[in-house]
Amino acid sequence: MSLLNAIDVVKRFGETTILDSVSLSVDSGDFLSITGASGSGKSTLLTILGGIDKPTDGQVLIDGKDITKMKENELSILRRTTIGFVFQFFNLAPYLTVRENILLPIILSGKSQKSYSSKFEQLVEYLGIQDHVSKLPDKLSGGEQQRVAIARGLIFDPKMILMDEPTGNLDSKTGNDIMKLLKDINKNLNTTIIQVTHSEKNAQFANRIINISDGKLVETTNKGPGVDEHTA
């Protein structure tokens, strides 16, 4: 069974149709890039897939459960445990330290932080931010902030991470490092990743690329260079 299934998803804003009967299936371990021109609806699709926004019509199933029917509290728990989010502007809580930001979903779930301490140590070391755990976000560079955001997305071992322009606010070198890291996570941790990007180059890190145009999806199967070519 697919991890995520979007069935005939429609999204309208007034008279304008942004998504027109979009259907999509994502398997566990996929790395999917959604590309498209500005205003094509790619970010809208991502927010619908993550339960942030509701479609006008259609269904979104995660592990067979229709998230469009879920109440806000159920969605909150879903976001906390099943989906990790990473966005262009890092979006860290400014008054929490790096450590507190990463452990935020754990604290909110009421679980013991101690039981996640080894996971936390592994993650910060893996992401190379172990020296910054006591700092506040404004003391970090853009790349470091994005790594913290990724760590927060991974702390609960989510089944998938949704990302909207994860490198959009970073220089190309740092952006490339982040993409390699994500590919690594996808490969080593088997975490499903869905990213929205307008960067052709970043899209190539995925094993599936979907282009969105006039509210409809056009899938391009990608067997392309992937991480190996980019690391070269």
Partner: peptide
């Protein structure tokens, strides 16, 4: 916006 981050991280209404 700060509160958005909390919500994004799974903050429920009770939280």
């Amino acid at each position: 916006q700060e509160l958005l981050v909390y919500k994004l991280s799974g903050m429920t209404t009770k939280n």
